[in-house]
């Protein structure tokens, strides 16, 4: 962002990368894929780069309001300094926190998730998709909690998938009844509490029961959890877990 502003440009959108998108090898690929789509569509965008901090979602949900406030207020200072108006996120947790929690702290932006943005670009004719490697394949879509149940976005990602010419199959628990992958509420950063089963295994089994070859998701943490689940079920050679922005 600093470089773009220094060059006198005022980018239309800010791509909020998030910690996973920045550091997690799998999620980095999603960040790169999404940037390439933006390049292709000719969108002027920027990232905060080193000036971006964790939105604070996992700290807040773990109960650590101090750490949340520190990182959130720092981010709001940065965002307001650059007069950011519109933010696109590839991570539902960043999306939710920026959209729903920053206003109470003085950060008011238009925040959208990348699935919504992709849909918008397609409607405007700025990008198009072909089924390609995905056409005819059975795909099931996993609703992340923070895009689905928490923010009520169920149809946009499904419409995107249908454009890929594939066969979309629903899991037993979908949309508002969708089962969590097990990572939310800062579970990603701790061992499970004692139980019979890991949540991601339960969800992966449900996804595999559909007979899908591809599990589509919209959240870097869901992708990690489901990928681990698929590996645990030794299906990693036949079943792939993809983010919606992936192109091949």
């Amino acid at each position: 962002m600093a470089d773009v502003v220094a060059a006198g440009k005022n980018p239309e959108i800010l791509f909020w990368v998030g910690c996973a998108g920045s550091y997690d090898a799998r999620a980095q690929k999603v960040s790169i894929a999404f940037c390439k789509i933006l390049n292709k569509a000719g969108i002027e965008y920027a990232i905060l780069g080193k000036e971006e901090s964790c939105t604070g979602d996992p700290a807040r949900r773990a109960g650590n309001e101090f750490v949340f406030q520190m990182t959130a207020l720092q981010n709001i200072e940065t965002l307001n300094m650059y007069k950011v108006k519109k933010i696109v996120c590839t991570c539902p947790h960043c999306f939710n926190t920026l959209k729903n929690e920053y206003p109470a702290l003085g950060g008011n932006y238009e925040v959208i998730h990348h699935t919504q943005f992709l849909q918008q670009l397609m409607e405007e004719g700025k990008i198009s998709v072909q089924g390609g490697a995905f056409s005819g394949k059975k795909v099931t879509y996993h609703d992340s909690c923070y895009i689905g149940r928490v923010n009520g976005i169920y149809e946009v990602p499904r419409q995107l998938l249908e454009k890929l010419d594939n066969q979309l199959v629903e899991m037993e628990r979908g949309k508002e009844r969708g089962l969590c992958c097990g990572a939310g509420g800062a579970q990603m950063f701790k061992e499970d509490e004692p139980g019979d089963k890991r949540i991601n295994i339960e969800r992966t089994e449900e996804a595999l029961d559909t007979g899908a070859e591809i599990i589509a998701a919209n959240c870097p943490f869901c992708i990690t959890m489901l990928q681990d689940g698929v590996k645990a079920k030794e299906k990693q050679d036949s079943v792939m877990v993809y983010d919606l922005s992936h192109r091949q």
Partner: peptide, 24 residues
């Protein structure tokens, strides 16, 4: 999060990935 602004303590730059994001 408090010290390095990321959920993981990773020494890399936050935008290291971006060098691969050019082109379309």
């Amino acid at each position: 999060v408090e010290n390095s602004g990321s959920v993981w303590q990773i020494p890399d730059d936050r935008d290291k990935w971006a060098k691969d994001a050019v082109g379309s």
